[in-house]
């Protein structure tokens, strides 16, 4: 029997190949997530539930993952996932979606779920633009960059998502790029074992809608650019112009009790007192 790729047991084979463009970074993120799951000893995804919003990144889990997936409305996966997690606390609820979905239209849910320390792992695939709709400017698009809706250059400044979510109160925050495969796998493994709100931003390439407008026409061009610009957080203390670099690494790793645990403590206490 020919050796099958390890990830196939976690995927709906009948849905492959994926609909992603050549050079897209989504496959790398899927691979890293499934590798983390494999290395943690899972043989299937039955203990997981996946929630995504609208956009290319949201398709990673739906329909490709052989698992329960809730493909929701634009910007709302974290809110849907919060309800699901509270109803089924025994499940490992993971949100995988894009930067436009999670930090643009859904930005409010992101910061409040972090503040609430809701027991979710959120993986935000940041490709700097609205790729599915053709490459419009987004909340993470770099200043000055040309997109289909900033034909004269982006007059706005991007969110620093990792720092935003860290200051909102998440238990765990990391940022890597699709070049940092091993580091990303390790952070996913670490995050999957923790409670509370965990956020991983993955800087990813979109050659089709973003790269070609900034002179980086292939996935390889963009990944090379990520590699050159990345600087580890331990060496980034003196960096002032975050625009010019991608600070990667683990930004915070703390163990405050998650929302699920707190709410069940309340329920337990109320029921004890009333008996």
């Amino acid at each position: 029997m020919a050796n099958k790729h390890f990830a196939l047991k976690f995927l709906r084979e009948e849905t492959l190949p994926t609909a992603f463009c050549p050079g897209c970074g989504n496959g790398i993120v899927m691979n890293c997530f499934l590798k983390a799951v494999e290395e943690l000893g899972f043989h299937d995804l039955s203990g997981f539930a996946f929630v995504s919003g609208i956009g290319c990144a949201a398709w990673c889990v739906s329909p490709y993952f052989k698992a329960d997936s809730l493909h929701t409305t634009h910007g709302r996966p974290i809110a849907f996932a919060s309800g699901l997690k509270l109803a089924r606390p025994e499940l490992n609820v993971v949100v995988i979606s894009g930067d436009g979905d999670i930090a643009g239209i859904g930005g409010n849910h992101l910061i409040h779920a972090a503040r609430r320390n809701m027991d979710l792992l959120v993986i935000c695939i940041n490709n700097f633009n609205y790729g599915m709709t053709g490459g419009q400017v987004g909340p993470t698009t770099l200043h000055g960059v040309i997109t289909t809706t900033t034909p004269y250059g982006n007059p706005e400044y991007p969110f620093d998502l990792a720092r935003l979510v860290e200051s909102a109160g998440a238990n765990f925050v990391a940022r890597w790029t699709t070049v940092h495969v091993r580091q990303l796998i390790n952070s996913i493994k670490k995050a999957l074992k923790k409670e509370g709100f965990r956020f991983i931003e993955v800087v990813s390439q979109c050659p089709t809608s973003f790269g070609r407008r900034i002179g980086k026409r292939t996935g390889r061009d963009l990944m090379k650019w990520f590699k050159e610009r990345s600087i580890h957080i331990s060496k980034a203390r003196d960096v002032q112009e975050v625009e010019d670099v991608i600070i990667v690494g683990e930004f915070v790793d703390r163990d405050r009790p998650g929302f699920v645990r707190k709410i069940h403590e309340i329920i337990f206490k109320v029921r004890e007192e009333n008996v």
Binding site: R76, A79, G83, H112
Partner: peptide, 18 residues
């Protein structure tokens, strides 16, 4: 929740949670 959009979203998520 943080707003009504999140409220109805969480309600639907919880309903699929049974």
């Amino acid at each position: 929740m943080e707003d009504e959009i999140a409220s109805i979203s969480a309600v639907i998520g919880a309903s699929w949670g049974g």
